Amino acid sequence: MSEILRVENLKKSYDGFVAVNGVSFGVAKGELKALIGPNGAGKSTCFNMLTGQHRPTEGEVFLDGENITGRKTRDVWRKGVGRTFQITGTYQSMTVIENVQMALMSHHRKLFSMMPRAWKLYRDEAFEFLDTVAMADQADRPCSVLAYGDLKRLELAIALTHRPRLLLMDEPTAGMAPSARIELMQLVADIVKDQGVSVLFTEHDMDVVFAHAHHIMVLNRGELIADGSVTEVRNNPQVQEVYLGGGTLFKEEDAHA
């Protein structure tokens, strides 16, 4: 299977502190891949370099074979890389569908149309994205009254509006109830399967990771210590040591290749 993302020897240091140290990995087209690790392992720093928010100290990032290292965030976004964040950033004063319409106006370079008729732009297309995340029935509700799990779904719809080839999701289920976490990641898994979008996500909930990831990478102190199937990561002694001091990370029956 060909790769949508290839990272080579990625490094980021700040005044002598090395946050990410020589990380190399790939994400295949149509793959749902998890990047896990303890707090401070370098996961968010790695994401920020992939999306152009931070310039790597060393190393290169390739998107579908094209070198995008150090490109500006908006350029990376235009190339087909989307991102969701741990803390949602929707416009609370707007309705659900207006938030999606705003994203579509940005995608279609129509933000100059911020005028009384703007509410009519791309409304049908916005409904389609809301339907994808099971939010169409809440289209005209103000975001300020939504449950947190619904805000996460809305953020996903917004991230999909420019039809990304690669979607980076930073702690997508943070702050959600356990059942809502599984539902959201099942939705993401369905999108990966149906639309062929590649997804790289960070997550602390191991139940979510083991239930949905095709493959798992593990960062610790800025270094990649494992990259493989759920079974391979589960049986990796170094991963066991990082997470549970040598104990069993999860049960055999939880694993899938």
Rank of each mutant, 00 (worst) to 15 (best):
I182N: 06
F201D: 06
D150C: 05
A174T: 11
R153G: 00
S144Y: 11
T173S: 14
A180I: 13
S198D: 13
R153C: 01
T173E: 00
A136S: 13
L160N: 01
D150A: 12
M185H: 09
A136F: 00
L187R: 03
V145N: 05
G196E: 08
T202C: 15
G196R: 08
L200A: 12
P164A: 04
P142R: 13
H162Y: 07
L156N: 01
V199T: 14
R141Q: 14
A177I: 00
D194V: 09
V145T: 15
P172S: 05
A177N: 11
D170C: 13
L146A: 07
E183G: 01
M176I: 07
A189R: 15
S179M: 09
R165H: 11
M176W: 06
V199G: 07
K193V: 01
L200P: 10
K193I: 01
E171P: 02
I182H: 13
S144F: 06
K193N: 07
F201L: 14
T161V: 02
S144P: 00
A139R: 02
P178C: 04
A147G: 11
T161M: 11
V199F: 06
H162F: 06
L151C: 14
L160P: 03
R141C: 09
H162T: 01
D194L: 06
V192N: 08
K193L: 05
I158L: 13
M176L: 12
T202R: 09
I158P: 00
A177E: 10
L200H: 10
D140H: 13
F201N: 06
F201Y: 14
D150M: 09
C143A: 12
A159C: 01
G149N: 02
V145C: 08
S179H: 12
H162I: 01
L154Q: 02
F201A: 11
G196T: 07
T202S: 15
R153Y: 01
